[in-house]
């Protein structure tokens, strides 16, 4: 897993990436997210939840398609971006609101 190590950073507190093992779209999503974060100059990597390992997490978070990027925060409503994050504009807008 190509997780960049920035312990207790902003990203891991407010972002969760739901994945399924090492599926092609999961890999693509990681690649697209990494590129977007790099582009935005953001360090760190979100928390990842593998639904193949922890299927009940899908229920708990209401995530029924993968990959999915969940943004949480005490102040703001939670939002989700589904898919392999290949839509750069949508992804950068999503991250921009972080």
């Amino acid at each position: 897993m190509s997780q960049k190590s920035t312990p207790a950073n902003l990203l891991s507190r407010h972002l969760i990436l739901f994945v399924t093992g090492d599926a092609p779209r999961t890999r693509r999503a990681r690649r697209n997210l990494a590129a977007a974060l790099s582009e935005a100059g953001i360090d760190g990597w979100p928390r990842e939840i593998d639904l193949l390992e922890e299927p009940r997490q899908a229920l708990d978070f209401g995530m029924f398609a993968t990959p999915a990027l969940l943004r949480t925060g005490e102040q703001r409503p939670r939002t989700v971006l589904y898919g392999d994050l290949s839509d750069e504009a949508t992804l950068s807008q999503f991250l921009g609101e972080l």
């Binding site: 779209r25 697209n32 639904l51 209401g62 398609a65 993968t66 839509d87």
Partner: peptide, 26 residues
């Protein structure tokens, strides 16, 4: 299972359903 939230969700690319199937199996 309440998956109503998927209806208006935002999508940025193609997705898999393996996670859905794993959850259903569980």
């Amino acid at each position: 299972i309440d998956a109503k939230g998927m209806k208006g969700a935002e999508f940025a690319g193609a997705f898999d359903i393996e996670g859905l199937l794993a959850m259903l199996a569980s």
